[in-house]
Design a binder for these strands. Structure first.
Lengths: 307, 307
DNA sequence: CCTGAGGCTAAGCTGAGCTTAGCCTGATGC
DNA sequence: GCATCAGGCTAAGCTCAGCTTAGCCTCAGG
């Protein structure tokens, strides 16, 4: 057994703390250990080295000269290892932020935005939670949608929305009149306040007696899927549905004007805890991305710049 | 939990060895551990730090860049602690040498000799074993006594012996004739080949019809104790019994000439292991002390120089 | 004298650290 | 292509280092 091969790093750590504090009890408090455990560790180290490191008085300790000679090397070496580990590995720790959003947001607009955000912030990872799923996680940030008019002036307002009609690129030339439009199956989303009836009324006036081939589906992404299969037309919300529409090869039908809607997206976060820097950074990134989307209209890629 | 607070010194030691060997198996061999244990320790360290330190191929490992960045600090720090502990504490390690000797040697001649030896060699401690005790220890060195004539030329011969009569100082003047001598009780030691009968025959010729007040005891120290109590006379072996006789206040009776005996002390050690430097040093010290004793005759202190 | 701080020892519990066994992959030799 | 060897991995089981609590002792202070 070699004297120099000290079995436990913790022996050294305890020795250093006891020497610094000149007290086993205070060392134990710093290291979250009982004083008895500190005493035993020091004794183990002393037994291993064959020399006392501390002189004991009834309820006090004093560093021996040998203990004093050993201490600087121990302190320097423990410090070197710890600071090196800190600089090499602690910096690599990922800061996770959880974001809750609707399915359309999660599937359409957010993937690109979050990918860009994570690329620009390697130490931050966004866990995206979709509304309606069963996951019981308390999100750091939520993207909400509301139709109350005052939301336009909400401090964390993100973006408004416009209604457009999404069709396949090859169907664009076939829609030149209202009759052409009504020859298609028209997909409505169950949860949306504004559907085909309202949209047509708004743009073409009341249409009593006109038969609409309405079909109801549960979500916007699903309706757009149907359109991409050549099964009909659907209402899209820009700029949110832009990316997914583009991915599906859909374009805005030019026959129907772009119609501003009453809805607004905004950000919300828990009131019970302070905002972390990473959460704030994500918030700003979302707002910048939304602003950019609003500015270029966020139409499907194939319609504008090949992006 | 802080990344920098690494729980185990052994993790670092294993990491360093694996990195140096580029192999868990060879590191395990060096550290007397199984490769599986090495693997688990490295994995524990990697899990703690949150990053891999080694890339694994099917049956090979390669240090990662992070592992490579960490290694020099670990090596330097482990090295600093170990070399400091070595220089501070290993030098203080006592090298224990076990010496087996007779009770007379152990009680009389050896105490002073060994005390001087230990004073001159602070890193060596002699554990003295007495013949006849129950201790089951394998001695590094044995002082043996033998009466074969060829022992004088033994390579580790220590000293010869002379027979003298030990008496109290105040009894010296009372012993001027053989009759005076025979008026005392004469203590024989059971295990000695040479006793009072042989000694008197040798110095005064055969004494048929002379009644000797012989008394037998087990050991020489005991016979000398009796003499010091005024209970009689005993035969002493010089130079061995010099110190104990002096301690008891005894002197050599000048009426009986000093009689060379056939016995010799010599050193013996186990053949099954190499001689350690400390054992060799003790051997030389014993021979020097014996030589010095033979030169000055090693009579009781009170008889010569007050020492 | 009493109380509190602090070190020590003993006894008991727990999980870190080790071993063995068996599986897998890659390299090498026949 | 097959067999063998080297070496890393995982799982399961055993052991003892490391911890806690309890109780004792000494010293200092009120």
């Amino acid at each position: 057994m070699r004297i120099a091969k000290i079995p436990s790093l913790n022996w050294l750590r305890v020795f250093e703390a006891a020497a610094r504090h000149q007290s086993f009890a205070r060392a134990g408090k710093e290291l979250s250990m009982s004083a008895a455990a500190v005493s035993q560790q020091i004794l183990a180290l002393e037994t291993h080295l064959g020399r006392p490191l501390f002189e004991r008085a009834a309820n006090r300790i004093n560093l021996t000269s040998e203990g004093g000679d050993f201490l600087p090397t121990v302190q320097a070496s423990l410090g070197a290892i710890e600071s090196k580990a800190e600089s090499l590995f602690a910096r690599q720790r990922i800061d996770r932020v959880t974001l809750l959003a609707s399915q359309l947001m999660a599937m359409s607009w957010l993937p690109r935005v979050l990918a860009d955000f994570e690329a620009a912030n390697p130490a931050i990872r966004v866990d995206l939670l979709v509304e309606g799923t069963q996951r019981k996680v308390d999100p750091d940030l939520v993207i909400r949608f509301g139709e109350e008019p005052h939301l336009v002036r909400h401090p964390t307002w993100l973006m408004g929305m416009s209604h457009v009609v999404m069709c396949r690129k090859e169907d664009t030339a076939r829609i030149g009149s209202l009759e052409d439009l009504l020859s298609f199956r028209l997909y409505d989303v169950a949860s949306h306040a504004i559907g085909w009836t309202a949209l047509l009324n708004h743009n073409f006036g009341p249409q009593p007696g006109r038969h609409l081939k309405l079909e109801t589906v549960d979500t916007t992404p699903l309706s757009l899927m149907m359109v991409s299969q050549g099964l009909g037309l659907a209402i899209g919300h820009l700029p949110v549905c832009g990316p997914i529409a583009a991915a599906l090869g859909l374009v805005v039908c030019p026959f129907v004007p772009r119609t501003p809607g009453p809805g607004n997206y905004y950000l919300e976060q828990p009131q019970d805890r302070p905002q972390r820097p990473s959460v704030g950074r994500l918030e700003r990134a979302l707002q910048e991305a939304a602003h950019a989307s609003m500015r270029i209209g966020a139409q499907p890629a194939g319609a504008e710049d090949g992006r």
